[in-house]
Amino acid sequence: MTELNDSTYVENGQVLGLDPQDPIYVDYRHNFDGEPTALNHPEMLRLQWSHGHQGTIVNGISRIGYMKGGHAARWNDSTMAPYFVDRMRQWLDTIPRTHPFFLYYALHEPHVPRVPSKLFEGKSGMGARGDVVLEADWCVGELMKALDERGLTDNTIVIFTSDNGPVLNDGYKDQAVELAGSHDPSGGYRGGKYSLFDAGTRVPFFVYWRRHIQPGVCSSLVSQLDLAASLAQLTGQPLPYGLDSKPYPDTFLGKSRKGRKALIVEAYGHLALRYGHYAMIPPYKGKKVSVEGIETGLDNHYTLYDLQSDPHQQHDLSQEKPYLLKKLKKIFAKLTGGKMEEAIKAGLKK
């Protein structure tokens, strides 16, 4: 298993290439003496920060927080994509063809800082963000190619999804906003990353199983949480009682339209409710537009939207449908154990 820890690779619990004589120290509040940051050494930057990323400089890019040490183990941003592709291929080579496996392959693109490899640098015509989107597409293609080469595609379910909605300006001046042109990464939906509006909590979700799943579109309401129970049921594993995860294997395989009736969604520590084709956002204190320029969905009163007739969430129904709003409040309180209702009331009184 390979993962990232600040500016290093961690594999099987060990930092790769770490010199024991040069340990890593991390602090998210205070800088270490003598360590360069965007504030005290801006001349070292090759990518300018816009907000929140003014910490320790690694590879000419300032990061969130502060670190020192671990110099031999620090990554190179522009080689991360091919490195992960190679590790993915190497790992698949260790799996016998008839042996069940689970591979979680986390793409780092198009997360910031957006630093494409030389193979894709300048290729999109839309700046670094466009380049790393091309790179992400290549990485997925390499994964599919690796499965094909090993004769695994017909017996492997591939799931492609994301952790949140889109964002252009996410802390660096990489011209993502200026070069987006007419492209709308939110697809016309309201909000984006950090938002309780639908563009923040509705994410891409593709399920592919060659010769088993017919191409199609499903509008059933499901959560990524449901993958755990669904895959467990699909592979004949027992399901513990009381899981938040719900089993919908036939829905994911395109054989059913069954889905959740209600779902709690989250953005930046705030919770909201999806109930059928309705979206209810409780009142919260906070900015209506984030520093990234995204509508957060925060307001000082409950808002209610019918996503079937108003998918772009332009018409608040909270005053027009008081009985429905009352019903959804009760469902929200039940699903959150009443804790969120108490927190909301306390927060609004401050």
Rank of each mutant, 00 (worst) to 15 (best):
L243V: 10
C218G: 01
I213R: 01
L225N: 03
L225P: 00
L221P: 02
L227F: 08
Q237N: 13
S220E: 00
W209E: 02
R210K: 15
Q237G: 10
L239F: 11
L227V: 13
T235W: 04
A229D: 00
S219K: 10
A232G: 15
S230A: 08
Q214T: 15
S223L: 11
P215R: 07
V222Q: 00
Y208P: 00
G216T: 08
Q233N: 06
D226E: 03
Q224G: 15
V217R: 07
A228V: 15
Y208H: 10
H212I: 11
G242T: 14
G216M: 10
L239C: 10
S245W: 08
D226T: 11
R210D: 00
A228R: 00
Q237R: 15
S245P: 05
S220V: 08
G236D: 00
L227K: 04
S223F: 14
S245M: 09
P215N: 07
L243C: 06
A232I: 12
G216L: 08
V217L: 07
Y208Q: 01
P238Y: 10
A232Y: 06
Q224P: 05
G236K: 02
Y208N: 03
P240Q: 09
K246N: 05
P238H: 09
S220T: 09
S223Y: 12
T235V: 11
R211F: 01
P238Q: 05
H212Q: 14
L239N: 06
P240M: 13
S220D: 00
G242Y: 12
S223T: 13
P238R: 05
R210P: 03
G242W: 11
G236L: 03
L243K: 02
L231K: 03
D226G: 05
A229W: 02
P215M: 07
L231I: 15
Q237M: 15
A232V: 12
L227S: 07
H212T: 15
G236S: 04
P238A: 12
W209P: 01
T235M: 09
D226I: 09
C218V: 09
Q237F: 12
R211N: 15
A228C: 04
G242S: 09
Q214F: 08
K246S: 11
S230V: 13
S219W: 01
C218S: 13
L243F: 03
